[in-house]
Design a protein around this nucleic acid. Structure first.
Lengths: 221, 221
DNA sequence: GACTGTGAAGCCATTCACAGCT
DNA sequence: AGCTGTGAATGGCTTCACAGTC
């Protein structure tokens, strides 16, 4: 019983297709080809068709895909055909930004609880919800049935927070702290580290520079 | 003149090794094996050795790697052996959080300018720097020699901001807006979309649920 | 004996190219 | 003719396994 045979890259692309289809739908497009989706999302048309083929046949040969239809299918595949209650621990700068992040709301991710250990931010409002002390974490997770948690606490507190989330019934965690969580295998953890992106950038910029240096060196002799 | 033959996955892992080595160094470890690095970062030891092999021979057979030494090599490879001036456009919630993000500072990414179109946040201080109007974007980029820009503006403004950054000399962009930028090929753009992570999570949670359903269905008949 | 560095094998994802439908 | 769906070919990354070194 493996988790699935679908590449993660495919899932990420499906999410991108979904956004593109929403846009096409807003523009009143009714039918769309794999080439059009590919152009709009920066992949190849064969890739689009292969990705969709993992889940069924959604198009009509000689015609293309019905935009609304395909969008619905993809959203169902991704689990976006419903709302997901999410709890967030760590009401610092980043936590506050995420609690109010519209991208989450639009896609059905509802922040139903924001928590902090520090008494300072407790009582603050983020939209309709109020920052609570971490003591009430378990209570809220259970009452709201949250299966997803977001961690935006400092590295030192991350592991403990992760364990409490799991103990209270959370099945998946989006971790923005720099600490690498060690949690049971069946818990889905995704680690977001902005510096990692920056480092890919600086690696490439550094290569560019080296190339230029070598170029001028070759020229010189 | 291809950009390089090194897989991006390798670069990302090098960044992770770098963090792990820093930690080992702080703990006073002098020598470390590929197995130890692998265990500490969740990869295989062969992977660690292969990744390093792209750039040279840094270890001693029968012994392992010198922690400080290897860390230095990796940081040089990633371009982390210096500081990088970075400008940030969009002083909203997320922009503020990033402007103060310690993870950047620690790794040598110095935010040397924060800009906004909205007059509201202008004049606000983030640490030592003050939010400026976007008119002064070009001036600051040139004066400080920034090659990296971060975009945290709404989708509607992202494209224009991207173009202005490039026109002023920025070579790489970390884009937090939901808009997919179209910029010259030689500009390195990395798109960060939190919802994408969430969608990978909901896809997997949805699969889990389906599995359980099928399990009980199979049981029932 | 321990551990690195690496060619070869294996595996997985992407691309190709075309048969099949409208 | 146009476009999807897919088996086959390709390409690239990861794992294996071992020769080389300390």
């Amino acid at each position: 019983m493996k988790t699935s045979k679908v590449p993660e890259a495919t899932i990420l692309r499906l999410a991108v297709y979904s956004r593109y289809l929403e846009q096409a739908e807003r523009q009143g497009v009714e039918t769309i080809s794999s080439v059009a989706i590919a152009d709009g999302t920066g992949v190849t048309s064969a890739q689009v068709r292969k990705d969709l083929a993992y889940f069924g046949e959604f198009g009509t040969r000689g015609v293309g895909y019905n935009v609304v239809d395909l969008g619905g299918h993809i959203d169902r595949i991704l689990g976006l055909d419903r709302t997901w209650p999410v709890v967030l621990v760590g009401a610092g700068k980043l936590g506050s930004a995420l609690a109010l992040y519209e991208g989450f709301l639009i896609r059905g991710f509802h922040i139903v609880g924001v928590f902090d250990i520090d008494p300072d931010p407790i009582g603050k409002r983020f939209g309709s919800i109020v920052v609570l002390p971490v003591d009430r974490l378990e209570e809220v997770i259970k009452k709201r049935g949250a299966k997803i948690g977001i961690i935006t606490v400092p590295a030192s507190a991350a592991q403990e927070v992760g364990e409490r989330l799991v103990a209270a019934g959370v099945k998946a965690i989006l971790n923005f702290s720099p600490h690498v969580l060690s949690l049971p295998e069946d818990i889905l953890v995704r680690h977001v580290d902005f510096s990692l992106h920056m480092e890919v950038i600086t690696f490439n910029l550094t290569i560019e520079e080296k190339k230029k240096e070598n170029g001028s060196k070759a020229h010189r002799r």
